[in-house]
Each structure stands twice: as C-alpha cells, then as structure tokens.
C-alpha cells in the first residue's frame, strides 16, 4: 500500500460549454494527501476548486461530469465504485464541509436530527445512542448550550454556529479525510478565526487528513502542511508550505502572495494580479495564465508548460522556470 491516503491522478471534469465542446473546468489535476496531513488547494474564484472537491465525492452537479482520471482513497478506486458503495464512502470515509453554512443545512429539519442522520446512515445504532453521540460532537465543536441546540432549527442559529454544526456532521463517523471548501468565506472575520482554530485543533486531536480549499493565503500559512495552487482548472504549483510561500516558482503564486498584506516580501509593492479568471470558454490554449502574466514569453501562448521540479517536494508548471534537476 502506498504512503498516501488520497491519490488524485489527471482528473478531468467538464461542463457543457457554449458550443458542442465541453469546457474542462478541471483539466488534469493531480495531487496526493498523506494520512493526517493538511493539503491546501489555493486559487482565485472560478478556477475550479469546488468542482475538483465535488469530483472527489462524485457529486458534480449535472450536466457536469467526470471525464477521466483516477481517484484512489486508501488504494480504493473511487471513480469505479458502484453507486451503493460510493454512498458508503461519502460521509463515512470522506466527508465535506461546504462554503455556504447558511443554505447547506435542511431548513425544516432540526439540526440535531441532521447529525443523527449522518451517523445512522453509516452505523447501525439506535436513535438514542446516535443522539448522545451528537451531543458529544456538539461539545467537541464547542457549541454553547449543546442540549438546547440539538432541537434547534437552522434559522435559529448564527452562521458561525451553523458551520460548527456542519463540522460536527462531517466528523460524525470519524472520516479519514475531510474536504473543507472555503469553510470560513461566508463568515464574519472574528468568527472566521474561531472556526479556523477549531478546525486546526480538531485536525490535530483526531489526526484526520484535510483538503482545505481557500483563496486566503493567510489561512494556508496557519493550517496547511502542503499547498497546491490552482489556476483555470490546472495545478500550477505544488509543494511544502514553507517552500511555496518562501520561494514561489509560478508568477501566479507570486501575484497571489503579493496581494496578501502580511505575507508579501518586504519592499515589494502590494500589487494584485490585473484582471480576473476568464470564463472556462475563454481559457487560452497554452499556459492558461498567459493573458494575465507579467513575465509572459512567446511560447506561453501556444504550448502547455510541463511540470518542472524545483526540489523533491516542490514543482511548478511554467515556461519561465528552469528545473533544478
């Protein structure tokens, strides 16, 4: 068995585009996660982070579809599992926390019951036992007055509390991997910090692997062990946190870092990358970043850059970078 808990190879997910061609919103994404490790997936809005995450659970909304690639969880080929077997993986071995706590809970079911459902879908326990487990979970994610909250409806709770419920639900059956899709984006700044520290504590206590999706490099710096930088459906840079943050190889990563106040290198101006991620239909043929890159070469527009190693654990896909091997 390999050292990795999750191995994603050349994952391609597409949506119907404007013409007859399908837009590859996720185009050949590869990364691995070790047990207990926090991998951050970083990139601007619209570059395919959520779709990548949903692909891992095979929950890409129709008419989107996974075209090719492989996803191995503990050596098990996720993409070829039968539908009932896939159901056993979801919420049990791999669970997900969503971006929008406001709408991600069923508004007409008590939150306690929703967590109880998550437990009983995978374990043959009585409602009563599942309820006392839920109470424990609520305490674990530090929900005040947990007994009262069990019977609350989502609209009774604040955004931060809802996200805690979501986390409790994701932890319910002790999955090996939790996918957290921008778990704090929709929350107030103070609440964001609380939720993040909660996530870090729980991750360390339970030794769960986490795929943390975010566009906030500050969050990455606090939580991640490794970083994958994604741009327009592709991974452009990947490596250990320290390496990527201290020695970014890709102009896009540098741009992201520069627009981060606390993390930019001293002396350099705060400059955001000009423009926005284009819509998938307008993605260029060669390097997808070439339309916004300040260091663009001729070759960038026509050829897809290959992966170049900067160290054993750090690689970049950019024509301007020389491999060190």
């Amino acid at each position: 068995m390999s050292e990795f808990l999750l191995e994603v190879q050349d994952l391609v997910t597409s949506f119907p585009g404007s013409g007859s061609e399908r837009a590859r919103v996720v185009d050949g994404v590869s990364f691995n996660i070790r047990p207990g490790e926090v991998m951050a997936l970083v990139g601007e809005s619209g570059c395919g982070k959520s779709v990548s995450a949903l692909s891992l659970l095979r929950l890409v909304p129709k008419p989107g579809a996974i075209e090719s690639g492989s996803v191995l969880l503990d050596g098990k080929d996720i993409l070829s599992l039968s539908v009932p077997d896939m159901r056993k993986v979801r919420g049990h071995e791999m669970s997900m926390i969503f971006q929008e706590p406001m709408t991600s809970l069923n508004p007409v079911v008590r939150v306690g019951d929703q967590v109880v459902e998550a437990i009983r879908l995978h374990e043959d326990v009585s409602v009563k036992a599942a309820r006392s487990r839920t109470l424990e979970l609520f305490k674990q994610v530090r929900i005040p007055d947990p007994e009262v909250r069990l019977d609350a409806y989502p609209h009774h709770l604040s955004g931060g509390l809802k996200q805690r419920i979501m986390i409790a639900m994701a932890l319910a059956t002790r999955p090996k991997l939790i996918i957290a899709d921008e778990p704090t984006t929709a929350l107030d700044v103070t609440i964001q910090a609380q939720i993040l520290s909660l996530l870090r504590q729980l991750q360390q206590e339970l030794d769960t692997a986490v795929l943390l999706i975010t566009h906030d490099l500050g969050v990455v710096n606090e939580l991640a062990d490794r970083i994958s930088v994604m741009y327009a459906g592709r991974i452009v840079e990947q490596g250990d946190r320290r390496e990527v943050l201290a020695n970014p190889g890709h102009p896009y990563t540098r741009g992201l870092l520069r627009s981060m106040p606390g993390l930019g290198r001293p002396g350099e101006p705060l400059a955001e990358i000009s423009g926005m991620v284009p819509a998938p239909a307008d993605w260029p043929r060669g390097c997808r970043f070439c339309t916004r890159c300040s260091e663009v070469l001729d070759i960038c527009e026509s050829e897809v850059p290959a992966r170049r190693r900067l160290s054993l654990t750090h690689h970049v896909a950019c024509h301007a970078v020389e491999a060190t091997e």
Binding site: L57, L59, P61, P84, R87, K88, V89, R90, G91, H92, S95, M96, F98, E100, T103, S104, L105, N106, P107, E117, A118, L121, H122, M166, M169
Partner: peptide, 14 residues
C-alpha cells in the same frame, strides 16, 4: 438543486 440536498448526498444518503 438546493445546497442542503448536496449536503444530504455528501452524508451518504441515497
């Protein structure tokens, strides 16, 4: 198409 349905699926509901 609502988010809570996706949550239910992610929990493993059929």
């Amino acid at each position: 198409n609502r988010d809570y349905v996706r949550t239910a699926r992610a929990k493993g509901a059929g």
